[in-house]
Nucleic acid binder design. Structure first.
Lengths: 341, 341
DNA sequence: TTGAAAGCGCTAACAA
DNA sequence: TTGTTAGCGCTTTCAA
């Protein structure tokens, strides 16, 4: 870059007195090139400090070997695990990654998708922002037939594959666990219901109560208060209640931990007074006291599956497309919910 | 992408019966183009679904407006904050980001840097892997005069700028705080000493002891045990000691929290028996019990400064280059270290 | 087994 | 204010 001119395949060609085409082939191990020639080319490339120019190659091939990833936030344990999984799978197959955060805003999400398109990503892996209500801003991507896969925070659409866990079942499991511990008055603290993830967990909570003859009480449900701090604000709200709950199912470990910390400070005993179940199996769930019962959720694997599915589509552009891939989850019981001894 | 041919500026030009050059200029608001023409161009581009092709443009301009970021791990609170800061600053100036993790391995770091070069990033922002002992693998970057900035985990080199905090001072502050609480037998749990970050914190610890007439005792220092779990293993080691320490200075909040959790499980009281100071002001420091005293460390700001410094270099390629930028840190005293009441 | 030649889509001198 | 022209560095037919 900069002022210094690039070392190109032409430079190598000239030095070796062969053609650029041969150099190009030799560099990528084309079978039609003599081993001897390849060796010479490699050696010279090495010597001259040649580096492949991805742009020129992409421009010419009309494909970039790059996958775009758009997520709401990078900074959660779950998301980092997913990204790590994506990176591993992508790397293995020789794909690069461009990553961007929407910070939970559709408009930023939309801008990111445009940028990704401008970079001509071959495919897109997306976990939607909280306030995303439609996927119109992906229309032009779909129209260009760029494969689009949603994971975790998904949107049902016949043209896209979704990869997720059964959040309804997971919410059901969490609530059921509390019921089995003898809880009768179970709260739910959850995220933005516009997102499938939180809507489904909430739904599972509702169903579990129903199945056990407990009426759903909207007073016992606290949903996403914008600007983080959900756990702390929820705790304050709980402390103001006339009659305390005896169990809480929270849609994330971080807010569960924050909430628990506040409640404990106010003198409430966990799990004796209130049992708590979180979600995600974030490392924090093992560090707080008591340790959090939680739903384990295969982030790394989800990333791997997402990337592999996408790459598969890219390679065999046949539309074998599954529409939904459901991964397993598991409840991990720890002290924060153990009312029985 | 795919089979569908791109809509190019030529298509727009043809449709409007003007030249491609004019379209190119119009699209980027070149002052020499009549407003009326610009409007026509924009409208047609819109209508035809034209999207800028970043590759062709980069190839031609020999600059990409892309910054490469290489970090050891994405999944820590600190690193996510840094990335968020970088992203904001980069976005503001119209730069894109390519992000990659070295997973603490020099070889992966080296591969990442190569890939970044292949993508012809305009500049590089790097936090080094734990076992990086030299920066030879950046030589070709430097030779091409691609600006390279290190942050947090840095390497002293006259050709690169480093952005960091005064880790020695911070280590000193943390240790001093424990001394002031009356601790006499202070342990240090730290990371890989090959990294400036941990080496300096360790050095500060040493100096503080020295300044207070306490002999440095290698038995009281536990350094990075590969494969994470540092906090837990350190706790086990502590519990095996004949004489327990009365204070611990840990180089990260996550290992401090894990260590504290283990110690508490073994019946040790924090801070009465052992006072603890962590590092980073990770959210976890406020969620564990007792809450962790820690060193606050401006991650977001560090990211912003790093990106701005780099972009500045990119824009005015004059070598105004400062060599080191030192950001402020601050000790935040919480319950985990408060021996005095 | 190799080479010649034609672009991929865009930009920037230079000219008009 | 706009157009002409010549590439940026690479890949890929087609031909030899």
């Amino acid at each position: 870059m900069k002022t210094k001119r690039e070392v190109t395949i032409y430079d190598i060609a000239k030095a070796l007195n062969i053609s650029a085409a041969t150099v190009s082939r030799g560099l990528k191990d084309h079978p039609a090139i003599k081993q001897e020639t390849k060796d010479k080319i490699r050696a010279m490339a090495q010597e001259m400090g040649y580096q492949h120019n991805f742009f020129a190659s992409s421009l010419r091939k009309r494909k970039t070997n790059t996958i775009g990833v758009v997520v709401p936030h990078l900074n959660s344990y779950f998301m980092s695990s997913v990204i790590a999984g994506i990176e591993k799978a992508a790397n293995q197959e020789g794909y690069n990654l461009i990553i961007s955060q929407s910070l939970e805003s559709v408009s930023k999400e939309s801008a990111s998708v445009k940028t990704m398109y401008n970079s001509r990503v071959d495919g897109l892996l997306v976990s939607l922002a909280g306030d995303t209500q439609s996927i119109e801003h992906f229309d032009f991507i779909l129209k260009k037939e760029i494969p689009l896969i949603f994971f975790d925070r998904v949107f049902e659409d016949p043209n896209c594959t979704s990869i997720l866990i059964d959040n309804t079942q997971a919410g059901y499991d969490a609530t059921l666990h509390l019921l089995k511990q003898g809880c009768k008055r179970i709260m739910h603290i959850g995220g933005n219901l516009q997102s499938n993830v939180y809507a489904d967990r909430h739904e599972g909570y509702k169903q579990a109560l129903e199945d056990h003859g407990i009426a759903y009480d909207p007073e016992l449900v606290i949903i996403d208060i914008r600007g983080g701090q959900l756990g702390i604000k929820a705790a304050q709200q709980i402390l103001d209640m006339e009659k305390l709950p005896d169990g809480i199912f929270t849609s994330s470990d971080t807010s569960a931990a924050a909430c628990m910390s506040e409640l404990k400070r106010a003198g409430i005993r966990i799990p004796e007074d209130i049992a708590i179940v979180g979600f995600n199996d974030d490392p924090i769930s093992r560090l707080v006291e008591p340790r959090l019962t939680t739903i384990q959720y295969p982030g790394y694997e989800m990333g791997e599956v997402a990337a592999k599915t996408l790459i598969n589509k890219l390679k065999h552009s046949s539309g074998d497309s599954m529409n939904t891939i459901m991964l397993k989850h598991k409840l991990i019981a720890r002290e924060s919910s153990s009312k029985k001894t």
